[in-house]
Design a protein around this nucleic acid. Structure first.
Length: 226
DNA sequence: CGCGTTTGACCGGCGC
DNA sequence: GCGCCGGTCAAACGCG
């Protein structure tokens, strides 16, 4: 667990795509939701696009205001693997086919990618995205419990398995470093939270003075409600 | 003491 | 049918 210090929570969109950018030097304070475990690194916080706390990556109000100082943290790609996204991203393929259906009984609909999209079925919602970050723990406001670590065939990097530690919530996520570019972390969320985030997420609250956007937190940024 | 992480074993699906 | 491989379990351990 790399417990590097609080990284500046700067999101930088992929080139030519200003769909997802947030900036706040004090973001971490707004993410102080208490949702992260005591032992997990609070280094970076991120609102995952799950039902109860979806980031709207294409929020039109967001305008690039990227300082030249390179952020440590930027989402370069994101995509859903919910059957609705026909095009796979060029960089990563969401695991889920192949043998991913193992022990699917523990998670009722875990075989989405392996099944032909022939009929309607309740399927596990899944979203994956690739994030350029030094840390592997994206603190998304939920409380995760690690339950497994596995080295996978096609990647030199181990894959970590997390489960939402909230009782009754079986959302899972996988985290692994991109085999092609270790600077990136591929995070895959699977399932839908049955509860709200431990932190109420505010989307892109803009600070009038600085023009910065505060993405999430238990409270709005000070002064933003004046 | 409680909670989370670590880690090796095990399970079950899939491809050959 | 068999082996491979991804995903999960669970006991041991560590930390606050």
């Amino acid at each position: 667990m790399a417990a590097v210090g609080a990284a500046p929570l700067l999101y930088q969109p992929a080139a030519g795509d200003a769909s997802c950018f947030f900036s706040s030097p004090s973001m971490s304070s707004y993410f102080s939701h208490g949702g992260s475990s005591s032992t997990s690194s609070p280094a970076s916080s991120f609102s995952a696009a799950l039902d109860t706390a979806p980031v709207q990556p294409a929020a039109p109000l967001l305008q690039p205001a990227i300082p030249d100082s390179a952020p440590h943290f930027d989402i370069s790609e994101y995509f859903l693997d919910d059957g609705a996204f026909g095009a796979q991203p060029p960089v990563v393929a969401v695991p889920g086919g192949g043998a991913a259906g193992a022990r699917a009984a523990t998670n009722t609909q875990a075989r989405s990618a392996a099944e032909p999209a022939a009929m309607e079925r309740p399927r596990t919602e899944r979203i994956a995205f690739r994030t350029k970050t030094e840390t592997e723990i994206l603190d998304d406001g939920y409380k995760w419990r690690k339950y497994g670590k596995k080295s996978v065939k096609n990647s030199p990097n181990p894959r970590n398995y997390y489960r939402c530690s909230t009782e009754g919530c079986n959302v899972k996520k996988r985290v692994e470093r991109d085999k092609d570019d270790p600077a990136y972390v591929v995070t895959t969320y699977e399932g839908t939270h049955t509860h709200v985030s431990p932190s109420t997420v505010y989307y892109a609250t803009q600070d009038a003075a600085s023009g910065r956007f505060f993405v999430a937190g238990t409270h709005p940024p000070p002064g933003s409600l004046d």
